[in-house]
Design a protein around this nucleic acid. Structure first.
Lengths: 238, 238
DNA sequence: CGGTGAATTGAACTCGTTCAAGCTTGGTGG
DNA sequence: CCACCAAGCTTGAACGAGTTCAATTCACCG
């Protein structure tokens, strides 16, 4: 099960065996990225990057030095597709939060596949619309109090990792630091610590040994006002 | 100049005269929507909606009754494209913040145009990637203090309205209430009032008679840490 | 055994909320 | 022409969530 990317794309609609093959070929040359290092260091739009293992984060550093993580990049997620727009997101960086494996894909090659295979074209639309929907949900989430916000984030991670086969029913490997989580939900690392403790004592989460377990998933979802509809796991209507 | 939509799409790349014509035909049947009413009331994915005048907002009402506006929908903006994903965004609504004119476009017809004309296909990709980039910037913006956040929002509005010819060099018609602005930047209406007053006394904005004027655009942009790169106004690289 | 990165705790402080009231304006009906 | 009403804007004061600063603990690693 080394193909989270394909596994994820199948949610957009059925892929033919030929299409799956074409995608598999893209991801052969992998490269390791250390934690705390950026995945994309040189500018340019000629390559797209696929994370095949580990967790990265899209982030921006504000004037006051704060780092805000905009979204997580999980195994099977593409990044820098967005860079197709000239000059866009020059300030948005992608940093590995844990050690990552990354496949660099040539953009022309990917564009080719999209134009050749309708299933892949559909899948790429789905990926983009999903990404948009996810980001909108993050904006919504920013309006909730910190504990709910963190709960919501955990639920999104659980479901997203389950999609690529990297989470069990109620738990997943979670190697991020509290500081990373703080930057992702936009609070100080001191405050996230207190939030974590609160969720722990309420027995909403068990987070130790780099593993996050959720004793009662239904309860955490309710607490975080989490409804997976926005993840578009049912595919595209078009 | 009744075609903000086409005007906006031209930023994605050149459109042929045939393509412009095809787009113009889509937008013939318009309908008025009163302020404070939703633009899309019945569910279904068979139609896309184009706002041709007025300002609307994508929003979600949270459990505690708070309304969070996720993004503005300006003249020339499509909505419900996103609904192509089954079951996605059933909870995201689009409400007219001022009186609006809306053109309802049949999705098959639009899909047709996209498959027929490469310029339109490219433009729709640009619209979507831009939307994504914009939304990410809203997440970033949520990490700034309220005055900076509002300043940033104003800058985005100024540039976006200029693109469709609905703003001057340093001002635009702005018929929103302070309560709408509060929901857009995620603070209480009491607090936004104090923020507005602060920006006024610092002479960063002049907001009266439904008009927002910016005495010194450069200064407001600096204050709000605004860099228009994320709006992708230079078009697509692919 | 020292050193580094992460988690934790306390205390003072600040930004933003909430509640509650008052004000201003434009519109409506008598 | 005035009385009244509803929306939106403004203000004050108490409160609360989250920040900041500073220090401590702990685990791991060379």
């Amino acid at each position: 099960m080394s193909e989270p990317f394909i596994r994820k794309l199948e949610h957009a609609g059925i892929l033919s065996e030929v299409e799956r093959c074409a995608l598999r070929i893209l991801t052969t040359n992998r490269r390791a990225v250390l934690a705390r290092h950026d995945i994309v260091t040189s500018p340019g739009t000629e390559r797209v990057h696929l994370v095949t293992s580990g967790i990265a984060g899209r982030y921006k550093v504000l004037r006051d030095g704060t780092r805000r993580i905009i979204s997580f990049v999980l195994p099977g997620d593409l990044c820098w597709v967005h860079a197709a727009a000239i000059s866009a997101g020059r300030d948005l960086k992608i940093g590995a939060l844990t050690p990552c494996l990354v496949a660099d894909i040539s953009r022309p090659q990917l564009t080719d596949l999209i134009q050749t295979y309708p299933g892949i074209s559909r899948a790429m639309w789905w990926v983009t619309l999903t990404e948009l929907s996810r980001t909108r949900e993050w904006v919504v989430n920013d309006s909730r109090p910190a504990p709910e916000r963190f709960a919501h984030l955990i639920c999104e991670l659980l479901v997203s990792l389950q999609v690529v086969g990297m989470a069990g029913e109620d738990s997943f490997e979670f190697r991020l630091s509290q500081a990373d989580v703080a930057d992702a939900i936009g609070v100080s690392h001191v405050h996230i610590n207190r939030v974590v403790q609160a969720l722990r004592t309420q027995e909403l989460i068990v987070w130790c040994d780099q593993t996050l377990r959720i004793p009662n998933v239904r309860r955490l979802k309710a607490f975080g006002e989490f409804d997976p509809g926005y993840l578009c796991l049912d595919g595209l209507a078009i």
